[in-house]
Simulated assay, not measured.
Amino acid sequence: MLDGTDRHMFVAAQDRVALTAAVPTTVSTFDLTYQPGQFSGWHSHPGIVVAVVTSGTVERQTVTKRGRCVTEEFGVGESFTEVGPHVVRNAGDVPAVLSITRIYPTAATQGRIDEPAPACG
């Protein structure tokens, strides 16, 4: 659990920022490196992923509810969340490193769910 107790509802709030979990939740952190030209393939995750770029740059592509692909670029010190289907790629010529924090239901049986590429992908 986020707070180390057996409570099923966890709420942390401060300065108008809130984190709420209605099920037992696990948090894990790791570094992920994308070599030049490498990409993740379309996928999603249970829960929420927060990524912080610690070196290089990456592009993240997501799909809007209307089916439009949106591509954004993130560089060192920038962060983004991963919710819903997306793909991440290193379009640069140096390795890109992401510090990843996953916040997910403890009962989740997989950390990544492969997704089909959308028509715009």
Rank of each mutant, 00 (worst) to 15 (best):
M1A: 13
L2D: 00
L2F: 03
L2M: 08
D6W: 04
F10T: 14
A12H: 15
A12C: 05
A12K: 15
A13M: 11
D15V: 02
R16M: 10
T20C: 08
T20A: 14
A21W: 00
A21P: 05
A22W: 00
V23Q: 13
V23R: 12
P24L: 03
P24C: 04
D31K: 15
P36V: 02
G37N: 06
Q38D: 12
Q38K: 10
S40T: 11
S40C: 03
S44A: 14
S44I: 01
H45R: 04
H45F: 04
G47K: 03
I48D: 07
I48T: 13
I48G: 00
I48Q: 13
V49A: 13
V49E: 12
A51D: 12
V52L: 15
G56L: 01
G56E: 02
G56F: 04
T57D: 11
V58N: 01
E59K: 07
Q61S: 13
Q61E: 13
Q61F: 01
T62R: 13
T64G: 11
R66H: 10
G67R: 10
T71W: 10
E72F: 04
E73H: 07
F74L: 07
F74T: 01
G75T: 08
G75H: 08
V76I: 13
G77L: 10
G77M: 08
E78G: 05
S79Q: 12
S79P: 00
T81I: 12
E82Q: 11
P85W: 06
H86E: 07
H86Y: 11
A91W: 00
G92S: 10
G92E: 09
V94C: 00
P95V: 07
P95C: 11
V97F: 02
V97C: 06
V97T: 15
I100T: 05
I103R: 01
P105N: 09
T106D: 00
A107Q: 05
A108V: 04
T109W: 02
Q110D: 07
G111V: 06
G111Y: 04
R112F: 06
I113F: 06
D114Y: 02
D114L: 10
P116G: 09
P116S: 10
P116F: 11
P118W: 06
P118A: 06
A119H: 07
G121W: 07
